[in-house]
Design a protein around this nucleic acid. Structure first.
Lengths: 123, 123
DNA sequence: TTGACATGAAACCAAATGGTTTTATATAAT
DNA sequence: ATTATATAAAACCATTTGGTTTCATGTCAA
């Protein structure tokens, strides 16, 4: 595959097979052969996709027994999210503004302003 | 380039040059040659990138005089945003929960509920 | 210990990608 | 009318991508 450069998250999610792999792993860790069973292509092909996802650090694999179990690592998606947030300003709906505020607030110090309606205990 | 299938938004943003083109167009409409002046590659190459962006409907071009002016069309990024939002649940910070709520609320009637943090996955 | 299972690694391949150069055409400016 | 500008379209090219098949290796189970 790629001789030199590592794949980034943008490249990693460009392929529909890889997106489906991510979705599968979202439900729980899986070994390669199990993942492969959800596709109509060879195990080797899936292994290569996992390698690319791994380079982008969207998944990590650890060997357990004779299996190699893969786990979803969603952290790099934050980069995508941040990239996307720049384009929020070109949408003209109000939610994007609110979201922008939230994105730029720290882990703490969350302040949410409620509109007139007063809601207690939702289910 | 691609013989049959149109490029989608995931493929379109996979290339750094194309992302830079989008960023440029965010500042305003531009004709091809103007866009090209910001890169160290041929006009033809840029035209091809614009074609791919166009297939993904991230830009549109209209001819004005002898120029073809391109404009950013951010709407397809909503698909990306939606795709991303699925993975919010795998982050364990509170912001992602809040954002999820906002994403799923209507234009009015914003209700925000603070939840206790759960899920400490055993490694 | 002998298989069966799970993966790794390599060689190979067609098509797509990302670029180039060349040639042609339409519009603008002098 | 001539020339310069802006783009389009085509042919070409090297590398990457996304897949295959084949062979080797490590591990579990009987």
């Amino acid at each position: 595959m790629s001789a030199a450069e590592k794949h980034d998250v943008f490249q990693a999610i460009a392929d529909p097979t890889r997106r489906k792999v991510l979705q599968l792993l979202a439900e729980g860790d899986l070994p390669i052969s199990e993942i492969t069973s959800h596709f109509s292509m060879s195990r080797t092909a899936i292994a290569k996709h996992l390698h690319i996802l791994s380079e982008a650090e969207l998944v990590s694999g650890r060997k357990v027994g004779r299996e190699k179990r893969f786990r979803l690592q969603p952290e790099p998606l934050a980069e995508l999210k941040q990239w996307l947030s720049f384009y929020d300003q070109f949408w003209d709906n109000k939610l994007s503004i609110l979201k922008h505020v939230i994105e730029n607030s720290g882990e703490n110090g969350l302040k949410v302003i409620e509109k007139e309606k007063d809601t207690d205990e939702p289910s």
